[in-house]
C-alpha cells in the first residue's frame, strides 16, 4: 500500500511543483494520473521511489517512510519507467539491458534468465533478445525500457507516458502488460495524456492541476459531463466515447465498451 500525506515539493529554483497532495493506493489498484503539462505528475511519481524527497509531508510504502530509505532499496519495491527510453538504454544487447535492473537487485543465473525472458515476452520482444537496442525503432526501444523495469518484479510498477510514440498495436501491448500485472496482483500507476488509453485501461483516474489533486474516481465518475469544465481547466479532453455517450443522452460512457453497452441497453 502506498500512502501520501500532505506532500509538498518545491524545487531548488522555487517552483512549487506539488502543493499538498493526499493519496492512498491499495495493493493491486490500477491508477492513471492525468492533467496538463507541468501540473506535477512526474514530480509526484518520482517521490514513490525516493528519487525526489518531500519538501514537507510524507510518502509511505507499505507503512515505511520512503524518506528513510535509499533509492537502491526502494527500487525493489517500486519500478519506475521513464518517459524517454534513450536516457536509460546503455547495453549492446537487448537481453543485457533488461537484465541490468534484476541483476542490481541480486538476481543471478537461472532466476535472472527467467525474469528477463518473461519480461521480453510480455512486451513482445522475445525474438529481439540478441539484437542491439539502438537498431530498434523508437516504439520498440520504449517497450524495451518497459521490459527492463518489469523484469525487476517490483510489487508496484509506475509508467510515465507509456503510450507516446506507440501505434495502435503498441498501445494494445501496453494494455496487455497492465492487465497481466493486475492479474498478478501488482499495483500499476500510469501518467498519461492519452485519454482513450486511460479510460480503457485503468479502474481509477486521478486528475492533477497546479500541484494538487482536483478529481479522483472511476473513469465513469471523472469523465462525467459534470466534470468537463474542471477537466478543461487542466487541458484534459474526455475520451471520444464519453462525448458521444453524452450527446446521445446515455450518461457517462468513458469506454467503447460502456458506450456500446449503453446503446444496446437503450435499443433493447
Amino acid at each position: 500500500m502506498i500512502e501520501i500525506h500532505g506532500l509538498v515539493h518545491v524545487y531548488p529554483d522555487g517552483t512549487r511543483a506539488i502543493d499538498g497532495v493526499d493519496l492512498r493506493v491499495e495493493d493491486g489498484e490500477r491508477i492513471a494520473i492525468i492533467g496538463q503539462n507541468g501540473s506535477g505528475k512526474s514530480t509526484l511519481v518520482r517521490h514513490l521511489n525516493g528519487l525526489l524527497r518531500p519538501t514537507s509531508g510524507d510518502v509511505l510504502i507499505d507503512g515505511e517512510s520512503a524518506a528513510d530509505q535509499r533509492v537502491a532499496a526502494l527500487a525493489a519495491k517500486v519500478g519506475l519507467v521513464f518517459q524517454d527510453p534513450d536516457r536509460q538504454i546503455f547495453a549492446g544487447r537487448v537481453q543485457v539491458e533488461v537484465g541490468f535492473g534484476p541483476r542490481n537487485l541480486g538476481l543471478r543465473g537461472a532466476a535472472l534468465d527467467a525474469s528477463v525472458a518473461q519480461a521480453l515476452a510480455a512486451v513482445g520482444l522475445a525474438s529481439e533478445a540478441n539484437r542491439n537496442p539502438y537498431d530498434l525503432g523508437f516504439s520498440k526501444r520504449k517497450l524495451l525500457a518497459l521490459a527492463s523495469i518489469l523484469a525487476m518484479g517490483t510489487p508496484t510498477v509506475v509508467l510515465d507516458e507509456p503510450t507516446t510514440g506507440q501505434d495502435l498495436r503498441g498501445v494494445e501491448r501496453i494494455q496487455g502488460v497492465v492487465a497481466d500485472l493486475h492479474a498478478a496482483g501488482r499495483t500499476v500507476i500510469a501518467v498519461s495524456h492519452d485519454m482513450r488509453f486511460v479510460a480503457e485501461t485503468f479502474a481509477r483516474v486521478v486528475v492533477m492541476e497546479a500541484g494538487r489533486v482536483t478529481l479522483d474516481g472511476t473513469p465513469a465518475e471523472v469523465f462525467a459531463a459534470a466534470n468537463w469544465e474542471a477537466l478543461a481547466r487542466t487541458y484534459v479532453e474526455p475520451p471520444l466515447a464519453s462525448r458521444i455517450g453524452d450527446r446521445l443522452g446515455l450518461g457517462s460512457t468513458p469506454t467503447d465498451g460502456a458506450l456500446v453497452g449503453a446503446l444496446v441497453a437503450k435499443g433493447a
Binding site: 518520482r46 537502491a72 521513464f82 537487485l105
Partner: peptide, 19 residues
Amino acid sequence: ARAGEIADSQRARGLDTQG
C-alpha cells in the same frame, strides 16, 4: 539536465551510486 535524468533512470533500476 540530461545527465541528471540518466542518473535518475539508472538509480530507479537499482544502480547504487553511493556504494
